[in-house]
Design a binder for these strands. Structure first.
Length: 316
RNA sequence: GGCGCCAUAGCCAAGUGGUAAGGCAGCGGACUGCAAAUCCGCGAUUGCCCCAGUUCAAAUCUGGGUGGCGCCU
């Protein structure tokens, strides 16, 4: 049997994914499944541009506020949890509308990729591997990796500490190399039949202007207070959640390491760079409908074009 | 008005006679268990403010000009 249909709305930050997602959910009897690695944390609302109460009332939302900021989350957990959401929505006769900007999460959810049965990472092991990397250097670590997974080692750059450590960590924890896991999961059939829509701006400068404005709005809405609250509640600045754009910079400013204006400028800059990475990621979706705004977003038009596209793809 | 110092890529900047380091920004790319993270690649070419000169060879030396900074009267 063929995979069930889902709608995907992706694209760089500040392009209106949330809004279009809601419109599509309303039109196609859908429910939103967020695909955002930071919006899933509770108490991180302003800086992640999480859907507001009003927006959540306009359409059911899932995968928001599903973890505490001090929890370590991961793709595997996301896929497991989000797939359950999608299956549940489908079982009720509705359509999952996957909305978000985290490419890895979306691709992992849509593909048949399976992490079932694997435990979360062992912080102790990861810590010691990181320490070992620092002591021995990338070349040596790559050689250690090559001992059991030469294929993966050949693909990694010595400086890519994160992936080298992870490759070793996963092998130690599960006994399966990343390469083997990669090959095995690639052979699996896709979990869903996705109709993808990617939002963007015709001109890069317009996207950047939107981002800058959004950051100013976030600051006006109390971003710094939100971050101060998180830190006061004991959240470690080292946590994954605090690595989010807007949060790490605000935290640095609150700690007095940089000025407030400097932090705001950094948030804008980092957001722009993030947007570029997102554009690169989603540009690989050659079967997607690319909707690029020209000037002020016309959601009515976008909805019309999207509906046409989705209908042609068999959705109703 | 006089004296001194400086003038290298969008920004910071090394180089003081031998054929332009590095960092930041920007741009492009990657990405399978931390992903708003992490990593990789790309920049000065009738070249080093302009003009003239010395020299086999000048960003580097000399003279002049222009601009900036500092001090003095």
């Amino acid at each position: 049997m063929s995979a069930e249909k889902v709608i995907v709305v992706a694209g760089p930050t500040a392009t209106g994914k949330t809004k279009l997602g809601i419109l599509l959910a309303q039109r196609f009897s859908g429910e939103i499944v967020s695909a955002d690695s930071m919006q899933l944390y509770r108490r991180m609302d302003i800086g992640t541009a999480k859907a507001t109460e009003a927006e959540r009332a306009a359409a059911p939302h899932h995968m928001l506020d599903v973890a505490e900021p001090d929890e370590s989350y991961s793709v595997s957990r996301y896929v497991e949890q989000a797939a359950r959401c999608c299956d549940d929505i489908l079982a009720r006769g509705h359509t999952p509308v996957i909305v978000g900007g985290t490419g890895l999460y979306i691709d992992s959810l849509l593909s048949g990729r399976d992490f079932a049965g694997r435990e979360e990472g062992d912080e102790g092991l990861r810590g010691s591997l990181n320490a070992r990397y620092d002591a021995l250097g990338g070349e040596a670590m790559l050689r250690e990796l090559a001992a059991f997974d030469p294929e993966r080692a050949a693909k990694l750059h010595p400086s890519d500490r994160r992936r080298i450590v992870r490759a070793i960590e996963i092998y130690r924890l599960t006994g399966e190399t990343i390469s083997a896991h990669d090959a095995r999961t690639k052979a699996l059939p896709p979990r869903y039949d996705a109709a993808r829509i990617v939002l963007g701006c015709r001109d890069r400068s317009e996207l950047y202007a939107r981002i800058d404005k959004r950051v100013d709005d976030m600051v006006a809405a109390g971003l710094f207070d939100e971050v101060a609250g998180l830190l006061q509640s004991g959240l470690s600045p080292e946590s994954t959640a605090m690595q989010a754009i807007g949060y790490k910079e605000a935290a640095a400013a609150l700690a007095g390491a940089i000025g407030r204006d400097e932090a705001i400028a950094l948030i804008k800059q980092n957001s722009r760079r993030y947007a570029k990475r997102q554009i690169t990621w989603f540009s690989r979706w050659d079967d997607a409908l690319f909707l690029n705004w020209e000037g002020t977003p016309d959601f009515e038009k976008a909805l019309r074009i999207s509906t046409e596209f989705l209908t042609a793809r068999g959705l109703s």
